[in-house]
């Protein structure tokens, strides 16, 4: 029984259900590099994307527009 649950734990760990099997804390330097790389991608500037939330709300208020929010991440492989 224990063997089977251990194997299952591995499977569910991949799904993020078991804390002990989650990835270790990320390296802040690497995370910053990945963020910078993401922010430097051509489509970000080209599309006029605002990355400061407070500023986006301020512009929306001033221009009476909706905020179109795109949530993504920079740390994915």
């Amino acid at each position: 029984m224990s063997g089977e649950t251990r194997t299952l734990s591995l499977v569910l760990g991949v799904l993020g259900l078991v804390p002990g099997l989650r990835a270790q804390d990320p390296d802040p330097v690497v995370m910053q590099e990945k963020l910078d790389a993401k922010l430097g991608e051509p489509w970000v500037e080209k599309g006029g994307w605002i990355t400061d939330f407070a500023k986006a709300k301020e512009v929306a208020k001033k221009e009476k527009k909706l905020v179109f929010a795109y949530f993504t991440r920079s740390y994915s492989p």
């Binding site: 963020l35 993401k38 922010l39 949530f71």
Partner: peptide, 8 residues
Amino acid sequence: VPFLSIMS
């Protein structure tokens, strides 16, 4: 207003 939120 295009807003980009990146989780880093």
